[in-house]
Each structure stands twice: as C-alpha cells, then as structure tokens.
Amino acid sequence: MKREDWRPWALHGGLVATLALLYFVLPPYHAGVLPRVMVLSVYAMGYNILFGYTGLLSLGHAMFFSAGMYGLGLTIQHLDFTPAPAFLVGLIAATLLAAIVGALALRTVGVAFMIVTLMFAQSGFLAALYFGEYTRGDEGFAIQQADRVLWGVDLSNETNRFFAALILFAITLFTIAFVVRSAFGRALVAIRENEARAEMLGYNVTRLKLQAMILSGLIAGAGGAAYALLFGYAGATFASVQYSILPLLWVLLGGAGTTIGPFVGALFMFYLIDFSSEFTDAYLLVAGLALVLLTLFARAGIVGELRRRVWGWLP
C-alpha cells in the first residue's frame, strides 16, 4: 500500500497557519478583508463538493447560503436565540433544504438540473420577499452587536471575528481534504468522470449524489450563517441569482475539484474588483476582461493550472 502523501496536509496546515500569521502582519484593511473572504470561500468550498468533485452544476446554491443566514438571523431576531443554537438552526435549515431539493432535483441531470435548482432558489428568494414581515425582504435586518456574543466572545471585535472565521475555514478545509481522500470522495470523482461506469462498478450513484448535495448544502449554509453572525446583516440580496453564480465563478477561477481552489478564487475575485475600482469606475469591465482572459489562458483555474503544469500532487 502506498504511503500517504504528506504534501497536501502540509499545504492545508501551512495555509491555515499563514492566514493566522498574516493577521498580525497585514495592514488593518487587509486583515479586515480576510475574514470576509474566508467565510465566502467556505460557501465556495461547499459548492465545490457538488460541482468540482461530483460534477453537478447547480445554479441555486444561494438558497442554502441564505437558509443558513436566515436560520441564524431570524431566530436571533424574533426568538431571542443566542448565537450557538441559532447557528445550529442555520445548519439544520440548510441541510434539510438540501435534502429536499436534492431528492427532487437529482431526478434530473445536466441543464435540467441547473434549471430546477435555479427555480427552487428563485422561489426561495421570492419567499424571502413574500414573508417580508419577518425578513424585511430585500432591505434585510441588522443583527445587533449585543446579539453576536458567542460563549462570551464578542464576534464584532476584529480579532475575534478573524479567528472565528479562520476556525470555520480550517474546519471546512480539513473536512473537505479528508472527505475527498476517503472512499466516499473517490466515489464522487468516479461519478464526475463517468457516471455510467461508476454505476456499473456497483456504486449507488443516486444515494452518493444526494449525500454530496446534503454535504454541499450544509457547508454553504455554514458560510451563510457565519456571514450573518460575523458581519451582522441578513437580507434577501444574498438569496438572489447573482449569489448563486458567484460561488461557481470563484470555484472555476480558483480551480474546480481542488481543495484550495475556492479560497484562491474568492480571494482573487475580491482583490481584482477592489484594486481595479481604485483606478477606474469601470471595474466590472476589468473583471469581465479578466474572466475572458482566464478562460482563454488558464481554463482549469489558477490552482488547476498549477496542478496541471507544475505541482501534480496538488489536492
């Protein structure tokens, strides 16, 4: 039996350690940006399970992200929950939704799957508006600083927020690194590469896909709940189509089916827009050009290209 390759673990551990260290070295602005990018890349990592590893392109993940966000936000706002149980409600809401949507949508494949997930997400977005009495619709609501104290730790404080985001990021990253090397993860890749063959090899493809969907929704929901908790806002914008397309973009940019690709993609996209907006109002033009150039010259995404050309061992 082949010895376990140590390099992926070193990469993930190194990334988490570097991020922790960066907090003390980076100027305050960038130290404030990183937790946001980490939380959003948790969302993207969740998306990557389904898209990058299982090969299912969903256009509806905003519903899982916002299920987490509203699960936490609404229970804090209306039922006076404390953050820990509220976070749990967020996770449960996203997981349940993923199970239901998965059970229905996975009857379809390809573009039909894209549309079905898109339609469910659009219904979710409209429902957030329809129940505006509780959600305040598009305007959303702010979660007061006093309600964002988890086990005595005030998450609106810069340091606490950073490390809370890092902990969630690390848990997700290591979980995914573990999952994709497990038998389950390899089965998902087998489905992505050739579904018919995976079925012939005796895999229960339907069940595996549903499990991937649930895991993916759970992680996306964790991202949404964390976003609301750490940045104090929940609103219907995060349930809109645009926020379903974003994780797809981040994953494709960073490298689909790589463990750190979602983080790299989210980070790249953030700074691309942030930097270019300092030079020009037309930063969307710059972002658009960058996307086009990426498809022309680095089709596998940043990490994907690195794996293809330089470091074949990249997980």
Binding site: L252, L253, A282, L284, L285, G288, L289, L291
Partner: peptide
Amino acid sequence: ESTIVATIGLLYIIQQ
C-alpha cells in the same frame, strides 16, 4: 464550463 465563464465575462463587459 469555459463558455459559461467567458459569457459571464462578456455580460459584465457589455453591461459596463
């Protein structure tokens, strides 16, 4: 997949 990303890029470019 590349076509999706490229046309999202086009969408941004045309809108802006």
